[in-house]
């Protein structure tokens, strides 16, 4: 047991904090500790979790990506136009188009990083500006409201009326999110490719000497994030029932904060899907709780920023100092 806690310290710390917050919110508000609210939380966090697991893969491989959120905007816009031109399409064609577009945009980043040796933060800041600038230029900032019906109609996979008359729903975004989370988990923990990604992020030179294909690693990591971004873009359009070109602008930094809060390391080799999901959930639970407590929405972000700042400060200083047995256990 100690071994598990030790190797997943961040995840357990996050879980503990989430439980504490939840306990507090359950006592402070009536609505928080209801099934309905829990499912609401899942529904609203789905898009961010999809982004987060994609970004996690890039961080594990030692890169960083700033462009994925605007790439998702590009994907949803182009997909909407394409779907209209092919006469509507359906979920299958929609997902295929979104996936292909997303992977292509990710591959552009990988090409710049691998082939031309531009470091990932520089390359993706450049593509961030290119993707967003071109999107806004060609669309003139005009939103698309007449999306195909299948895309805008809510898909409820499970619903149940509670005793108090409220409805519990699981919607399509949750299913897609769960699929993405499981797929990413399988990729990075159960396949040799995933372990190669960890090894490459942990010690690139060592990985190279073992004959790991460095270029393939970059394309897989950024391609995976592209795939997730494409899917998230489509799902976000479905959730919002419209395509607004700058709707996802700025989302990249929020997601980055959540993923790193979940234990991923800038620099590579570290991070888990569980931590990543908990990171996103912690932020949405806090937001949800503050909302239910009647705190002004304008104060949310301030409080969340303060929480992240404190969390980062603490996670870098005292976990080891607070829990010294964890270190000693390892040092025999």
């Amino acid at each position: 047991m100690r071994k598990i806690i030790q190797s997943h310290a961040t995840e357990f710390a996050l879980l503990a904090v989430i439980l504490l917050i939840s306990l507090f919110l359950s006592l402070a508000t009536e609505r928080f500790f209801t099934l309905g609210n829990a499912f609401d939380l899942l529904n609203t966090s789905s898009v961010n979790i999809i982004f987060a697991v994609g970004l996690l893969v890039v961080l594990i491989a030692g890169g960083i990506d700033i462009s994925f959120a605007v790439a998702a905007s590009v994907v949803q816009y182009v997909a909407a136009l394409l779907l209209e031109s092919i006469g509507g399409g359906g979920w299958i064609s929609g997902l295929v188009i979104a996936a292909v577009l997303g992977v292509s945009l990710g591959a552009i980043n990988a090409l710049l990083i691998h082939r031309f040796k531009i470091i990932s933060i520089v390359a993706t800041i450049a593509t961030f500006n290119i993707y967003f600038g071109l999107l806004m230029f060609f669309t003139r900032g005009v939103s698309i409201y007449n999306l195909p019906d299948w895309l805008t109609s809510r898909v409820i996979l499970f619903e149940h009326e509670m005793a108090d008359g409220s409805w519990v729903e699981i919607t399509l975004p949750v299913l897609v999110m769960v699929v993405c989370v499981i797929a990413t988990w399988v990729l990075i923990t159960r396949t040799t490719t995933g372990r190669q990604l960890y090894a490459f992020g942990d010690n690139p030179e060592g990985a190279r000497r073992f004959g790991i294909n460095v270029g393939a690693m970059q394309f897989i990591a950024f391609g995976w994030l592209g795939l997730m971004a494409g899917i998230a873009g489509l799902i976000q359009a479905h959730y919002a029932q419209e395509v607004v070109p700058n709707a996802l602008y700025g989302r990249e930094l929020d997601v980055l904060a959540a993923v790193v809060l979940g234990g991923a390391r800038l620099g590579g080799g570290k991070g888990t899907v569980l931590g990543c999901v908990l990171g996103v959930l912690m932020i949405s639970i806090t937001q949800n709780g503050l909302n239910l407590m009647g705190v002004s929405p304008f104060a949310f972000k301030m409080i969340i920023g303060a929480i992240i700042l404190v969390a980062i400060t603490l996670s870098n200083t005292s976990i080891e100092r607070l829990l010294p047995f964890m270190r000693e256990g390892a040092r025999r």
Partner: peptide, 23 residues
């Protein structure tokens, strides 16, 4: 690879290869 386990480091060769396999 410091972040990976001792087992993974020692049996690293089983992770190599071009095509993905299950670990």
């Amino acid at each position: 690879f410091p972040e990976m386990t001792v087992a993974e480091n020692i049996a690293f060769q089983t992770l190599l290869g071009r095509w993905p396999r299950f670990v």
